[in-house]
Amino acid sequence: MHELGVLNALVHTVEGIVREEGLTEVEKIVIEVGELSGIVPRYIEQCYPAAVYKTFMEKTALELVVVPGIVKCRECGRVFNAAANDLYCLDCGGQNLEILEGNDMIVKEIVCR
């Protein structure tokens, strides 16, 4: 049920923006999902209709943009895609990694009026 909880949080966040900006209609939202966020894009897509059912977002389209999980090895300095490499450094095998990008889930854009 994790993705449903995340989407529920999303609906509340968009609701806040709609109120603040005085919007009347939200046609589409563009969401960035980081590869290292622990959130699975496919599940988000599957849960979305249930999460927005009977909310003001019922007719709002969802566009997901996957953001690569980029990390920097603190041992040797190499920068690489960690999601594709199981969180091990390609060069030195180290696991002391600093996450540079792809750690979170962000509302990027709202197409609205």
């Binding site: 806040g16 889930m105 854009e109 609205c112």
Partner: peptide, 14 residues
């Protein structure tokens, strides 16, 4: 319709 650049965490409201 207009495009609003938001750049807020999905968890911002919480």
């Amino acid at each position: 319709f207009k495009v609003l650049q938001v750049k807020q965490s999905v968890f911002a409201d919480n």
